[in-house]
Amino acid sequence: MKGLHSGLVSPEGNWWEPVGKQEKTWVTISFIWCMLLFAMMPLWHFKGGQNPSSGVRSKVDAQAFRERHQRFVKDYQVMVDGQPLMDGKDKNIPVVAPPPGSEVYIQASMWTWSPVLRLQKGATYSVHLSSVDLNHGFSLYPLNLNLQVVPGYDYNLKMTPNQTGEFRIICNEFCGIGHHMMVGKVEVVE
């Protein structure tokens, strides 16, 4: 055994010495904890309900996504007295009520989330998220459900609302000077 010294001293000779009991205990427990931390993630893919990496992950160009979004709006737009229902003050965002199980296209652009969605509680939707300009951040309030929206990529995830009410989509990725005004809406009904 050699003498203890501080981290400023050059250790001479062979310092590859046996590890003390307390250190060994702590390293072992830490290692087991790290393995548990690691195991939780694959486990949640099988047992848990929230996984951000499932679904189709494909590239999509802005124009193609914009057209797909327009078709989605046209197909399921909510009509009142023969007129399409709009919401969002002067932003005039169409309100869309897709049937359960349908493909839903949410388009992010500076500085609008389109459309306003009317979903049913307990129904599952296949949601596609993309941006037609910059990065945006999809943050469903007050659930605090956050996803990154990247231009050129279709982020497709299945979503199942488990409660009714009015929700908001906050943009939480900086997207220029109007970033703070970029708020969307999702309604969930029985």
Binding site: L37, M40, M41, W44, G48, Q50, N51, P52, S53, G137, S139, N144, L145, N146, L147, Q148, N172, E173
Partner: peptide
């Protein structure tokens, strides 16, 4: 953590 990031990302 992969999934917990859903309730933290960009907040």
């Amino acid at each position: 953590t992969e999934q917990i990031n859903i309730i933290a990302h960009n907040t």
